[in-house]
Design a protein around this nucleic acid. Structure first.
Length: 595
RNA sequence: GAUGGCGUAGUUCAGCAGGUCAGAGCACCGGAUUGUCAAUCCGGAAGUCGGCGGUUCAAGCCCGCCCGUCAUCGCCA
């Protein structure tokens, strides 16, 4: 049997000067231990804060002995009396810095081995080590704050919806596999040999069925799973706020999100967001910022260079233009103390090349003219270049030519991002924007057919209904993404609720009727029974928390994340399983025959 | 699948034309210490320099392959 231990009456964050004289019991971890021999200071830590414990020179033998045994991170109980610190001993950096607790009894609740890393922010350990000992990493102040922040954000979201007509409804996590889109995680069925469930990539179809059922406003904080390579802002499993509404048009969904985020930012950060977020079409976002998730905390916009690039004698420009391609430019602004060296321009070029640019041309605005780089190909047209670009002395004009519009835009977008970060022009704060009017289809070169750019259940905009089949590439959908500080925060659409239209979309995506009936028959069936028009959206909770926490990896706001190798170093999974388990599941492992 | 960065005591890092290069802080162990607050002082233990192979009189350092990890591209409707 466990012996009774001294149980806390206050936390390590509670005590103030007004508590002087109180007899208290604290539980926590030894955060720091300053032993002066007959005098001993301990910073005791729990998730509420730090409190200084003093073992005074009048301590009895037991207390002295207990104090001298203490090591970092021992879990202890302390009984003592609150006393004011002398005025010149007050620690103004600690909320509890006015007081200390004079220990009368210390009980070691459990001891701690040599730590794999220090539990503090100054000596942050490598990420693989942090993940291996995640439970210790979570003890650090930063992780404690971020996990608590996440709680506050999710709480604010739920509180917002609980004041409305929205119903929170759970949908299954063992569902039918649909091979479109991301790879599914599969779960073998023991009862039905050879058959599988999938873990949901999102509750998409279920929330649409809930609309058919008459739950006209639904939300859920849903765990989703995608078997794709993780990234800084992507994990195998992640959490999204899933929302669907009946009888709505695009702007109703957008307005709801603006209201929701306004409410969340007000309650979590005491920040007042604009009532409406800026809207950019996909086309404009790509053209101007080179991304469908532009970071609008800084300018440095991309422009079309055709008007002056066509005057140059630079083959890469003129040939690209004559082939119907694109030349775009950015004016990298002059900044005192920042040199656009050859080396730096080469770095920008390699950033552009990652996105398919063949090169990054440059020329400097100097002495009222242009010089260096490709300027020599503009002889006689220097003034025209300056006039068109508006470049001033010290600015650098950066250009990409590419026959592919998207590659031209995104490679310039990569350059823009680098410039924004390196020039330090990114304003603090939160810049939301909507990206709307996405193309509904994208051509898959490898497969040789059209695919849904977003997903197959999104409504084409009305004016394209007659040309879906004849010109899929030009069809815009009733799709919208919410972007925050360069991250895709939410993605949604007005959905199709018509069997025939849905089948047309499937066919364009190379899914014949027999196959779509087999895979999505339940949805198509449901649409036979008076589905209401509906639409929705799904903001990513992890990314929202990451951005608010000021982090660049969602691992920082997830208690037990996987690493980028899609492993959990802590519990070492995925792991092999007992052959008996496999046998029950009618599964045998086939050795990889490639090589 | 591809490209790049990183890998040196428990940990964070330093190390260099290839030759006192096996080092420092913190942690750990022993001791001292009455007002600290990242306490201080003295002493100690601790490393297959990610692995394997190569070049060389000599490799932590150079080369090749591999492994791990992070970032990015592909991928992620």
């Amino acid at each position: 049997m466990e012996e009774a231990f001294m149980q806390r009456t206050v936390t390590c964050g509670d005590l103030r000067a007004a508590d002087e004289g109180k007899s208290v019991i604290l539980n926590g971890w030894v955060h720091r231990d300053r032993n002066h021999g007959a005098l001993h200071f301990i910073n005791l830590r729990d998730r509420y804060g730090l409190t200084q414990i003093v073992v005074d020179d009048d301590a009895d033998e037991n207390l002295q002995k207990a104090a001298s045994e203490l090591k970092l991170e021992y879990c202890i109980a302390v009984k003592g009396t609150v006393r004011r610190r002398p005025d010149d001993m007050i620690n103004h950096d600690m909320p509890t810095g006015e007081i200390e607790v004079k220990a009368e009894k210390i009980e070691i609740l459990s001891k701690c081995d040599v730590l794999p890393f220090m539990i503090d922010e100054e000596n942050s350990a490598r990420e693989d080590l942090r993940l291996r000992y995640r439970y210790l990493d979570l003890r650090t102040n930063g992780m404690q704050k971020r996990i608590a922040l996440r709680h506050e954000i999710v709480k604010a979201i739920r509180e917002y919806f609980y004041k409305t007509d929205f119903l929170e409804i759970e949908t299954p996590t063992l569902i039918r596999s649909t091979p479109e889109g991301a790879r599914d995680f599969l779960v073998p069925s023991r009862i039905y040999p050879g058959k599988f469930f999938a873990l949901p990539q999102s509750p998409q179809l279920y929330k649409q069925l809930l609309m058919v059922s008459g739950f006209d406003k639904y939300f859920q904080i849903a765990r989703c799973y995608r078997d794709e390579d993780p990234r800084g802002d992507r994990q195998l499993e992640f959490t999204q706020l899933d929302i669907e509404m009946s009888y709505v048009k695009r702007d109703d969904v957008l307005a709801l999100m603006e209201d929701l985020f306004g409410s969340v930012f007000r309650s979590v950060l005491s920040i007042e967001l604009p009532a409406h977020f800026r809207r950019l079409s996909y086309h404009d976002a790509m053209n101007t910022y080179g991304s469908d998730k532009p970071d609008l905390r800084f300018g440095i916009e991309i422009h079309d260079a055709a008007s002056f690039a066509s005057l140059s004698t630079f083959n890469a420009f003129t040939e690209t233009l004559s082939e119907g391609g694109y030349v775009k430019y950015i004016v990298a602004p002059h900044k005192d103390g920042f040199d656009y060296t050859r080396k730096y321009l080469a770095e920008l070029e390699s950033a552009a090349k990652i996105y398919g640019a063949h090169g990054l041309a440059w020329m400097k605005a100097e002495n009222g003219s242009i010089s260096g780089g490709v300027s020599k190909f503009f002889q006689g047209n220097e003034a025209k270049v300056l006039e068109e670009t508006g470049a001033k002395d010290g600015d650098v004009i950066l250009l990409v030519a590419h026959k592919d519009w998207k590659k031209c835009c995104t490679s310039m977008g990569a350059v823009r991002s680098r410039l924004g970060a390196d020039l330090g022009v990114i304003k603090p704060g939160y810049e939301f924007c909507w990206i709307i009017d996405f193309p509904l289809f994208e051509y898959n070169e490898d497969e040789g057919h059209w695919e849904a750019a977003h997903h197959m259940f999104s409504m084409p905009q009305a004016e394209y209904l007659d040309t879906l089949e004849s010109d899929p590439g030009s069809v815009k959908g009733d799709l919208y993404d919410l972007v925050l500080n360069g991250y895709e925060l939410a993605s949604g659409s007005i959905r199709i609720h018509d069997v025939e239209l849905q089948k047309r979309i499937f066919r364009i995506c190379n899914i014949p009727d027999e196959v779509s009936m087999e895979r999505f028959g339940f949805l198509l069936d449901a649409f036979r029974f008076s589905p209401p028009p509906h639409g929705g959206i799904a903001p990513g909770i992890d990314r929202l928390c990451m951005i608010i926490a000021g982090e660049s990896s969602i691992k920082e706001v997830i208690a037990f994340p996987k690493n980028t190798a899609a492993l959990s170093p802590m519990d070492d999974c995925p792991s092999p399983v007992d052959p008996k388990q496999l046998e029950e599941l009618h599964i045998s492992i086939v050795e990889d025959s490639k090589e």
